[in-house]
Design a protein around this nucleic acid. Structure first.
Lengths: 223, 223
DNA sequence: ATACCGCACTCCTCAGACAAGTAGACTAGT
DNA sequence: ACTAGTCTACTTGTCTGAGGAGTGCGGTAT
């Protein structure tokens, strides 16, 4: 993973060694590491170099150093890059996850949407309807619309999930639409309008079902 | 968001300033920053302090320094740490996301489960039923059971999401169970058995509904 | 036009010194 | 015996100065 074009500086090597020993469980979660001077002597590097290695791991969120107290372990491993997971996954799997999130979010939105939320949703729907021939524009406005529904659900975790997934699907959608444009734009827009109405009516189950149906169709088209 | 208990060292402050300026677009993606001596003078800190700030951002993947060439911008923003999002979120919001994921996964599991999956699920259910008084054990076996359902759904993204969420809920669950133990263990076990039967019968909607009901009850209990 | 060389600039590493903060031991007072 | 305050050893934080090593540019000779 690290570019082999330039060899690791000592500090980076020291950071690797440290991370390996942390992963091996040499120091438990929250416990203190030996002092900088001790560690530097152990690895045979200067104290400044050791400090830079510690800083690097602190940047990754593995270590935390407190003046006067010491350096402590705050995580046993580096949080796996979320993008990497999505890159590895198939488009179908990603959309299935999107179905899970958006259907639930639609139901919650039906229950929790404020008048302001509803206004934002309707505005986004109108923007979607402009029928611009540009594929990029179409996908963007569609995404924006779906996001307003997520916002209306008032759940930060779901929003964050949505934002993680969208970029992964974005490319697949534009490619598909370029190859096979929407045959019936009015019909597509009507499906979205139905969802908005269900949310306006505070009909949770209908909202979930409409959202699910729409995304399932998308999944069929993309996989 | 960083613990306010201990004030930022100079190096951390310098890193923040640098990150802000990068986000503001002062240096484009892949462009070179001024030398460390220049930057140090600009911010009024020593070189080693500046170096530590750069190392910290390098750990986050924002900067990359090459000896002899300079320091370069490798990312305009830090991919937000998932754990950070979950830590900030309420337990209720996390469980709502879990409902979305597990209900959908239960439905998919009902459609896709292989005989091997079903065996694993039943085995996990049996382990759960041992009725050990230890709360920690109870939560762990319950989590393991739910995970077998996720595995049966055969969707890597959903599994990954589940694994991200569980640690956040784990603590809340153990705390709650210690304060208010399950009154009717048989009933709880029966609810899980019903889910397994629905998956065995390939009844997707019933599986989703049972999973949703179980987690909704959990949400009520925890929030 | 090309190949080579030198040089300025950069990051990398170390050592030493002192400041600032913490946590535990110690002591005095109740 | 317990509490509050002080003291002290140890830790991280910061700065300075020095030299080593790699990169990229421009000049020069071929």
């Amino acid at each position: 993973m690290p570019p082999l074009v330039h060899r690791h500086p000592l500090a980076a090597q020291a950071a690797e060694v440290l991370l390996t020993r942390i992963r091996a469980g040499e120091w438990a979660l929250g416990h203190k590491l030996p002092g900088e001077t001790t560690l530097a002597a152990q690895l045979g590097v200067g104290r400044s170099t050791m400090r830079e290695a510690i800083r690097e791991l602190a940047g990754k969120g593995v270590l935390d150093s407190r003046q006067g107290a010491g350096v402590f372990v705050t995580a046993l491993d580096v949080a796996e890059d979320w993008d990497a997971v999505l890159r590895r996954a198939t488009v179908g799997a990603v959309i299935e996850a999107r179905i899970a999130i958006e259907a639930e979010a639609a139901a919650l939105a039906a229950l929790r949407r404020t008048p302001t939320d509803l206004r934002a949703i309707r505005r986004a729907l109108a923007a979607r309807a402009l029928g611009d021939p540009d594929v990029e524009f179409l996908v963007d406005t569609d995404t924006a619309f779906h996001r307003t529904v997520l916002v209306a659900a008032h759940n930060d975790v779901l929003i964050e999930l949505f934002d993680s997934f969208v970029p992964r699907v974005h490319r697949a959608m534009t490619d598909m639409l370029r190859a096979r444009p929407i045959t019936a734009p009015e019909e597509d827009q009507a499906a979205h309008l139905a969802l908005v109405d269900a949310i306006a009516d505070k009909d949770a189950s209908a909202s979930a079902e409409l959202s699910r149906a729409h995304l399932t169709a998308l999944k069929e088209a993309l996989s």
